[in-house]
């Protein structure tokens, strides 16, 4: 650093005499911190690259799904920018396509995305002191399954620039994939766009199958929800798609919670 050790000593001296943080010390620290912030941002970006690549291919599928449901490329992109969530967006498009009510839309989003509340709760325990209220408001935007998973796996406390770096690149991948999927969905041959329709569901299976294999209680929740969902689809057809998902998920999760309460604190 250009200032060298001299200023450091001087600053330390003044700090010792006064017994509190003086201006010079603060300015020196600001320089250090700005370097730390930049490297933290790039570290977050680097950790976010695999997430962004994954998001790109999944949101490509979402883009196709959205256009097939009758939305425009711009609308699909707007949904991806403002929501940044796969399952919620796919269900939201269903509600729009079927002309559901706004209440249904709100309840569908609430049920499907409720897990983010739990993740947010868990993340608050890992936030650095520099995570002031405005930073919390900003970083909340980027709580997704994958970002939560990577952030939780960090040993250090989470800083705002680290999370911003990760959220930025992940969002970029998510929105870019959506736009290209929505735009190409019309250009692609039908056989390919038909086949792409399964991408998101394939990812959902990849999320629920491995834990179902390891845990009987998760398997119970998954199987119960699937059975109820089939019942809703073919027997109780009066219940609309969005509400059917809510009912199935809430009943299955409540039954699982009642039969198999989780032991560990924050086991999510």
């Amino acid at each position: 650093m250009r200032t060298g050790p001299f200023l450091r000593e001087g600053v330390c001296l003044r700090f010792d005499i006064r017994g509190k943080i003086c201006y010079n010390r603060l300015s020196l620290y600001r320089r250090d911190v700005s370097i730390d912030l930049r490297s933290a941002f790039f570290k977050g970006t680097a950790h976010g690259i695999p997430i962004a690549l994954g998001y790109f291919s999944v949101s490509f599928g979402f883009g196709i799904l959205a256009v097939r449901a009758g939305l425009s490329v711009g609308e699909a992109a707007a949904i991806s920018v403002t929501n940044l969530t796969s399952a919620g967006q796919a269900a939201g498009v269903d509600v729009i396509a079927s002309g559901g009510t706004l209440l249904e839309m709100a309840l569908v989003q609430l049920t499907i995305n409720l897990r983010y509340a739990l993740m947010g709760l868990s993340l608050t325990q890992k936030l650095d002191d520099s995570f002031t209220l405005p930073h919390r408001f900003l970083a909340s935007y980027g709580i997704t399954d994958e970002i939560f998973a990577v952030c939780s796996a960090q040993k250090d406390k989470l800083t705002p620039p680290y999370m911003y770096g990760m959220i930025l690149i992940a969002t970029l991948g998510w929105v870019l994939g959506t736009v290209l999927g929505a735009a190409a969905g019309r250009l692609l041959p039908e056989s390919i766009s038909d086949a792409m329709g399964i991408v998101l569901y394939g990812m959902f299976l990849a999320i629920i199958i491995p834990p179902s294999r390891k845990s009987r209680s998760v398997l119970f929740a998954v199987a119960a929800a699937a059975l109820l969902s089939i019942l809703m689809r073919y027997v109780f057809t009066a219940v609309s798609g969005g509400f059917a998902i809510i009912l199935c998920a809430v009943i299955a999760a409540a039954a699982a919670a009642w039969l198999f309460p989780v032991k560990e604190e924050g086991a999510a």
Binding site: A225, C248, A252
Partner: peptide
């Protein structure tokens, strides 16, 4: 359990 149940349904 909610995320698993939601995705399954």
């Amino acid at each position: 359990y909610i995320p698993y149940a939601v995705l399954s349904a």
